[in-house]
Write a protein that binds this DNA or RNA. Structure first.
Lengths: 133, 133
DNA sequence: TACATTACAGACATTAAGAGTCCTTAATAT
DNA sequence: ATATTAAGGACTCTTAATGTCTGTAATGTA
């Protein structure tokens, strides 16, 4: 029971893009090198992030990816949602509705998601910068 | 990304055992029927619960399983721990230590686990009884 | 216009984990 | 002694994650 590697890559990639100066974009090639993984694979992840509206892509020469304009609103939960889809940690396959056990599990998950929604990636990016100095 | 079916079965089984009157024990056969799954498979799950000290097993004729004496202390987290093992939802495979992203994820997970530790199965069992009336 | 660059999409292969079965062994009551 | 029941190991099957490969479309540059 673990979040996928894709989610980890996605979170790190988002921070990289946030640290990019101005609105310059980065290509998959560059982003893949930074994280030591294949460009084709990272491409899949980036496409998901783009479809979720978290980043913007421009094809063609001198193209690439850059962070979306709502930079300061993007949360951990947004990224997780983009890569993992809208799934629940727990599904009671036995009862069809009103399972008491499921209720408890769902509530706990909701609270965790609420916390991850309140954590913004921009904070991580800023923290990374000050750490570097 | 989902908790395993085994965890779901385990939680339900624990409640069934708690609803058992006195300290009478139930066999796998009986427990399996109640949840429409194969005895051999449920047996694996029960063994995990026994090893975790959540239930007690007695082999041989007239044997079976019964809830452990610390009935009122058993939490959701205890059961999850027994079936899922001591795993984390998130591991940053890139950085070896001090990953800012991992820190946030881990914190959120810890809070969720704390909540699941505060939720006791006995409450669910009691609630199930009063609902039945 | 031609060409190089880059994102996008689909099909495919590989791996890992979950889910479940089968068979044997050990323990216990009658 | 025998029937009953839990425990354990080896095994299969299915599903999802993880990636790769190939081709196509879009864009800038010369």
């Amino acid at each position: 029971m673990r979040y996928s590697n894709a989610t980890n890559y996605a979170l790190h990639t988002m921070v990289h893009l946030m640290l990019q100066p101005g609105d310059s974009s980065m290509g998959v090639q560059e982003l893949a090198e930074m994280q030591q993984l294949s460009p084709t694979y990272l491409s899949k992840i980036l496409t998901k992030l783009a479809k979720a509206g978290l980043i913007e892509s421009t094809p063609g020469a001198k193209g690439g990816y850059k962070i979306s304009r709502k930079k300061h609103e993007i949360s951990f939960l947004d990224v997780i949602h983009a890569t993992e889809g809208d799934t629940s940690l727990f599904d009671c396959s036995i009862h069809h509705e009103g399972c008491l056990i499921e209720n408890v599990m769902r509530q706990a998950e909701e609270n965790m998601k609420a916390e991850l929604k309140s954590k913004l990636l921009i904070h991580i990016a800023n923290e990374a910068v000050s750490k570097q100095k």
